[in-house]
Design a protein around this nucleic acid. Sequence first.
DNA 1: GTGGATAGTCAACACCTGTTGGCCTACAAT
DNA 2: ATTGTAGGCCAACAGGTGTTGACTATCCAC
Lengths: 179, 179
Amino acid sequence: MRRSSVETKAVILAAARERFAADGYDKATIRAIAADARIDPAMVMRYFGTKEKLFAAAAEFDLELPDLAPEQAGAGLVRHFLRTWEADEGLQVLLRTGVTNEAAAERMRTIFGGQVMPLVIDLTGDPERAPLRASLVASQLLGLALSRYILKFPPMVAATEEELVAWLSPTVQRYLTGP
Amino acid sequence: MRRSSVETKAVILAAARERFAADGYDKATIRAIAADARIDPAMVMRYFGTKEKLFAAAAEFDLELPDLAPEQAGAGLVRHFLRTWEADEGLQVLLRTGVTNEAAAERMRTIFGGQVMPLVIDLTGDPERAPLRASLVASQLLGLALSRYILKFPPMVAATEEELVAWLSPTVQRYLTGP
DNA sequence: GTGGATAGTCAACACCTGTTGGCCTACAAT
DNA sequence: ATTGTAGGCCAACAGGTGTTGACTATCCAC
């Protein structure tokens, strides 16, 4: 079969995102990704050069935080995070591999540091405690993702979005703006 | 050199715990563990049979939750968790590999489900919501470990034990006994 | 129709993995 | 001193990994 270059590249990237998200960096082999894309492993190298570059492309990700009213920032963040996680595999890719891969961990740090911190400063006007506040928020949000989507604690899997928002919002709100 | 059988086995196990804790299951190779223990890789197989069995031995772990007064359960849990994490590599081993390994994830579920849930029932007398409460506690505690020890968010690394306890206790306390 | 570019395949490479069996070698009991 | 046992090492296996280069097949422009 013969496809256009950009089409094939997109197919490979989609397969890579799925595999990386499901298995992490090491277990997601080039051969498996190529098989998913119904293509020869050599094509993956042709289009992306190296496994690391393919990973970098697959882990492209942006939190895209919306504007949030100060008193609803906690609830808004939790809800936004849950939906982003389910809509975009990028976060899952990063978490699954960030645990054993320093480069992915670094990206995680810049994503949360770089995107949540400005929100905190905007909400509190206090740049000094903003880094810690942002990290606390990240700790709860990533703990949520870990227990619900990765480790799959049954009660977390069974909970509805609204239940989780109700339980976690006060926590996140306090980390953002509380004493 | 010649050591006693039990001695060598202990040396191997110690090296394995370190390697698994630092690198996770896949990247911690038998050869690397053997090199750390200054021994031939074949010895590892001789004493533990297989890599999976070696991992099972290295991931042996118990939370050993203490008795906690109801109104200090949150603070007590956070402090106990932090100290356990730093004293025993078992938790780190489990988290690093549970992210990409179903067997380790299962152990994680039974450890937190099986040990935190009774505490919740004891504190609240409400068995119905106990599983969700325990999972929420786990989400925050594991999120703490993830951001501080694995992803190494700088503000979380820099924070003192007391600061972290102060920030996280209200959260954990509310998950345990709050509305 | 013919040429050249471009999508795709194949087979092999060098390396690393867990795992195995045979071979030493030091010790303790006889 | 001899022997049996148990700790330890070596070399190799079979399979899987990322990566490479030569080769084929298809399309489009002329």
